[in-house]
Simulated scan of single mutants.
Amino acid sequence: MATTQHYLWASGHFILLVSSIRYFLAALTFKTVSAWWYKASFTGAIISYAIVCHKQFGIPQPNLAYIRRALLDENIQYFILAFFWWSSRPITLALVPYMVFSLFHALTFTRTTLMPQFLPPTPAATANGQPQPHPIAKRLQVWVKANYDRAMNLVAYAELLLLARVVFGIFTFSNSLLTPVFYAHFLRQRYYQSNFTRGALAAATAKVDGLVNRPGNPPVAVTVWTNIKALLGRWAGQTLEPQQPAAAGAAR
Rank of each mutant, 00 (worst) to 15 (best):
87 S>G: 04
96 V>E: 05
249 G>A: 13
222 V>A: 14
173 F>T: 11
161 L>S: 13
243 Q>K: 10
93 L>D: 10
169 G>N: 14
61 Q>P: 00
66 Y>K: 01
78 Y>N: 14
11 S>G: 03
143 W>K: 13
233 G>I: 00
24 F>A: 08
65 A>R: 04
68 R>A: 00
78 Y>R: 13
18 V>W: 04
237 G>H: 08
232 L>I: 03
218 P>Q: 12
118 F>H: 13
55 K>T: 05
233 G>F: 03
164 A>Y: 14
177 L>I: 12
146 A>C: 04
81 L>P: 07
205 T>P: 15
128 N>Y: 00
15 I>W: 02
194 S>T: 02
144 V>D: 07
42 F>S: 05
71 L>C: 06
229 K>W: 04
208 V>M: 12
53 C>M: 06
43 T>F: 05
227 N>W: 15
137 A>H: 13
179 T>N: 10
228 I>R: 10
92 T>C: 12
118 F>Q: 09
115 M>D: 04
138 K>E: 13
33 V>A: 08
163 L>N: 03
105 H>Y: 06
64 L>I: 10
139 R>S: 13
25 L>F: 01
211 L>I: 11
169 G>P: 11
163 L>R: 11
56 Q>E: 11
114 L>N: 08
2 A>S: 07
203 A>W: 00
48 S>F: 00
25 L>Y: 02
247 A>L: 13
17 L>W: 03
73 D>Y: 01
116 P>N: 14
79 F>Q: 06
175 N>I: 02
146 A>R: 10
2 A>M: 07
53 C>L: 03
164 A>V: 05
158 A>S: 15
82 A>M: 08
1 M>G: 14
23 Y>T: 02
222 V>D: 07
11 S>V: 06
82 A>V: 03
106 A>I: 01
238 Q>L: 10
45 A>H: 03
111 R>A: 06
160 L>G: 12
76 I>A: 01
11 S>Y: 07
168 F>K: 08
221 A>P: 04
26 A>H: 13
143 W>N: 10
241 E>L: 15
31 K>E: 11
1 M>I: 07
